[in-house]
Design a protein around this nucleic acid. Structure first.
Lengths: 342, 342
DNA sequence: ATGTAGTAGTTAAACGTTTAAGTTAGGGTG
DNA sequence: CACCCTAACTTAAACGTTTAACTACTACAT
């Protein structure tokens, strides 16, 4: 491993001069500058980030943790989000440290460890919720972080989120335009903030369209295929005048459960019952029929979150510290080919 | 931030003593040991990993990079593999640094940068292939790494892989047992080593079963849904005596293309044509019909790869430096309910 | 009494950077 | 010619650890 000393010796200058040349600080004459650069080139010298880190009391690392999915479920955001983050971080000389969230009993422990040992300069949080202990801890510790997702209205912290209200509104409006009147929503348990927003979008859009909502059209269930499949079934056993002709599910995985429940009832997805998902996971386009879904700008969120965090770490004020992005409705056959319009 | 000096001052000893206590090296009397530990406790002291890293000339970081998928495809391994790695790494005091693979023009550049700046102590490679420039570089640089996947037979380096030959053999045997005789294989281009192994499994199992293989039953296509969908179609336009009654696809995504091609031809998946995928991605079980597929022990591979790498980094000899794991065939309706047996 | 060995601790150097402070030479000014 | 200023360096300290080398003390054998 070649160090700054080797370069200094080779160029016939002191190590300080080498450092000044490399960082562009300090007054160095052009000839010496060239000498140093040549030595750097010849030796293939690169400064040790660890030594720089010790000196600057910074690691140039961004911590990110996610909770693993159960084996039969996919994480709809990880790949694109992580890639967006890693790219943006690298552009600024930072890197992403991926650490596992261990026991849910003490969610904060791994974060605390990273902070106290100086492993990372800041965190990106995802999957935030109300009363998120991680947010509380990081605010208390005054440690930089940016969240993908919101939390309690009272807490002031930087976040980026995708507007679930707007997204589901888009979905419902699309269905209304296609002629649907009886639209159901497969929602999440009440404690999910993201679920609250998305459900709110449903309620608002239905009201805006002047449509009534039967109580049995809103079903809350877990974020799993099996539960969605099971809990969507009763809809299609309802009498013809109460049976929904369209369903908005809060997740593609849940939408798949709905689609299969439709098939189980001897009905056709897209034909008898329109279905819309959320996330636009890569499989959505390849299902039978292809699933209409709301696409989150995940790479953009990843980039934004990281650039905000780096500004924060560098002590710069954020231009916008709370950003709400719109999802985009990707229309596919699960809502077209509807028999209602024709 | 509290340092070892603070602890030393509080405990009334030298910093060396604190270090000795914390590392369990050196001779320290029990009373002083207690004093030090109490001070550590009271101050909430944790050693700075960066300072330790500088001293030890090691970062306790493992680098991992993956190529991003096109937007409409999913990465079937990332989440579970990464989680397996991160868990295993954390257990040994290491962490995973996720960096983006940038331009394919110089695949090695980001690796070289990590090596030269001392960012990581070793790498995990995935998606290796023949003549992989990353392997060549790391071998030349004598830098520790372990690969998920094999490469040229002549290169001696540590790897873990899932046995594609065995996997596809399992698949074909399963189909043969169900009574299938005309079995096709949707394979990858010739330059993919993984594809070679899997195709070899097909050929070997067909030969073992005493079954002939029509040339048009082996189709090579890209690892995409669209191409698979397009290139599987001709099979189902073949005359009844040459048309395959079962297809093994090298990927779940490709299998989905095949399934939809079957439906397009007015046939039923599972009924008229059995389909098997590879990867057992989370969606496989929720497709219509649920897809039989080969499950790779991804978390196990991740753990194994990391523990091997850490041994390597610590200069220990590896018990086994080349490990081949068996995939497991998960049987679902896409191969059951076949009309052949009954 | 003297040397020896072991125990328990301290001192100081080292890891590879950055940077404040100091030094030197040269040129301009009165 | 003495003075000051500036440009272009160098010296050395600091960041927070680990660890080799040293010191001081006690206990014990000779």
């Amino acid at each position: 491993m070649t160090t700054i000393k080797d370069v200094a010796r080779r160029a016939g200058v002191s190590i300080a001069t080498v450092s000044y040349v490399l960082n562009g600080t300090g007054a160095v004459s052009e000839p010496t500058r060239q000498k140093v650069l040549r030595a750097v080139e010849q030796l293939g010298y690169r400064p040790s980030v660890i030594a720089q880190g010790l000196q600057a009391r910074a690691s140039r690392m961004i911590g990110y943790s996610w909770q693993p999915m159960p084996p039969d479920q996919f994480n709809p955001i990880l790949e694109k989000f992580l890639h967006g983050m890693a790219e943006a971080a690298a552009r600024h000389g930072y890197h992403v440290l991926a650490f596992p969230s261990t026991s849910p009993s003490d969610e904060v422990a791994p974060y605390r460890e990273m902070v106290e040992t100086g492993r990372v300069d800041g965190f990106v949080l995802s999957n935030t919720n109300l009363d998120d202990p991680r947010i509380q801890y990081l605010l208390d510790a005054d440690f930089p972080f940016v969240a993908f997702g919101r939390s309690n209205a009272g807490l002031d912290f930087p976040w980026v989120d995708v507007d679930g209200v707007d997204g589901v509104e888009q979905a419902v409006r699309h269905l209304v335009e296609l002629g649907h009147r009886r639209i159901a929503c497969l929602a999440w348990p009440e404690d999910s903030l993201t679920g609250q927003y998305r459900l709110q979008g449903y309620c608002r859009a239905m009201a805006d369209a002047g449509l009534g909502v039967e109580p049995e059209w809103i079903v809350r269930t877990g974020n799993f295929y099996q539960e969605a499949h099971r809990d969507a079934r009763p809809w299609f056993a309802l009498s013809l005048d109460r049976r929904p002709t369209a369903v908005v599910a809060l997740t593609d995985l849940m939408a798949m459960g709905v689609m299969n429940a439709v098939v189980d009832a001897g009905l056709a997805v897209g034909g008898d019952v329109a279905v819309i998902g959320f996330d636009d996971s890569p499989v959505a386009g390849y299902l039978q029929p292809p699933l209409t879904s709301l696409r989150q700008p995940l790479a953009e969120v990843g980039e934004l979150v990281v650039t905000m965090l780096i500004d924060l770490v560098r002590g710069q004020a954020l231009a916008r510290s709370q950003v709400l992005l719109r999802p985009r409705l990707i229309v596919r056959d699960s809502t077209l080919r509807s028999r209602l319009g024709s």
